[in-house]
């Protein structure tokens, strides 16, 4: 392991077929599996909003995000499966059985269009910042290359999110109230997406999967979004919010991590429904997979 860590510290990159310590393989696999699950669960949430989204402009952005997220999930499941720990089918079965993890934010329900705006603006920014920090120094080559493309596309989502936010923030009082309600519901889950403070010897940091500590990324998000939301006249749902004149930094006060812990055990407010909906979707789309896997009929084969 010492040699392996020295190799990683020298900027060494591990490829799919390379030898690697089992601990590293398991840690990287679990990380990618959670990312893949989160893309799939996020894509399904986005899809739920296609018929409910107001206006063609936003509807197109929701369609685009749905396809992107499902596509990202697909790519990530392939990369994870190549690690030889679980097959894609096993990963999906574990997900639907509530036995593997996905991001906390997909354990809540998006109640209004305002929630969708808050997700696209606040949550997507948090997810993008986390992914950028992984991409920066990621020692596992196949994941790093997929992340490059995912990050480029998530950057596009950020623009769609900013477009949604600008429109609702510059809208009527009813729209602004809708968005304030969404901020109140989503501020803390978005902030908790970064996770609690990294442990002193976090192996994901040591093995160059993550490049930055959770609390550093979380603080950067706070410093950006607290003043930004306030500049548009929205309030932050943090009773102990303070601004330190000496450091010129915002402090959101103590963070209650119980809601995050609940989501990790599939006990979030909307976990059960989300997982059963995902399973239902998987079963309902079996015919598509069967059709794609079926050999071409003789007539079809002759026409190609």
């Amino acid at each position: 392991m010492d040699d392996f860590e020295a190799f990683l510290n020298d900027g060494g990159i591990i490829e799919a077929g390379d030898d690697m310590p089992d601990e590293y393989r398991t840690a990287v696999f679990t990380f990618i599996e959670m990312h893949a699950n989160s893309e799939l669960m996020g894509g399904l949430t986005e899809r739920d909003w296609i018929p409910k989204t107001p206006g063609l402009r936003h509807k197109m952005s929701v369609v685009a995000k749905t396809q992107d997220e499902i596509g990202h999930g697909h790519l990530l499941y392939m990369v994870a499966a190549d690690m030889g720990v679980k097959t894609r089918t096993e990963m999906l079965e574990d997900l639907f059985a509530g036995q593997s993890r996905f991001h906390n934010v997909f354990h809540y329900q998006a109640e209004t269009w305002g929630d969708q705006v808050a997700i696209a603006f606040l949550v997507d920014a948090a997810a993008l910042a986390s992914q950028q920090a992984v991409f920066k120094n990621c020692s596992y080559g196949p994941y790093r290359r997929i992340l490059k493309r995912i990050i480029s596309e998530e950057g596009f989502h950020m623009r769609l999110g900013e477009d949604r936010m600008m429109r609702i923030a510059n809208g009527s009082q009813v729209q602004r109230d809708l968005f304030q309600g969404a901020i109140d519901r989503w501020f803390w889950p978005a902030l908790q997406l970064f996770g609690p403070d990294s442990k002193p010897h976090d192996k994901l940091l040591r093995w160059h999967i993550k490049s930055e500590r959770n609390e550093v990324l979380r603080d950067a998000w706070v410093q950006k979004f607290v003043p930004l939301l306030q500049s548009y006249g929205f309030s932050i749902p943090a009773p102990d919010l303070g601004f330190d004149d000496a450091t010129q930094r915002w402090d959101v006060g103590p963070i209650d991590w119980e809601p995050l812990k609940a989501t990790l055990a599939q006990g979030g407010p909307d976990s059960a429904r989300r997982i059963s909906e995902a399973l239902h979707n998987w079963e309902q789309t079996a015919w598509v997979r069967d059709a794609l896997d079926a050999p071409a009929s003789p007539e079809m084969a002759a026409s190609v």
């Binding site: 077929g17 685009a64 396809q67 697909h74 790519l75 392939m78 196949p142 596309e153």
Partner: peptide
């Protein structure tokens, strides 16, 4: 070929068995 459906309409998903890589 892995799937005709990628993250957007203009992309499909393939894989390279030689270097074990997922390719759009």
């Amino acid at each position: 070929d892995e799937s005709m459906f990628g993250p957007s309409r203009c992309r499909s998903v393939s894989r390279c068995n030689a270097c074990v890589e997922t390719i759009e």
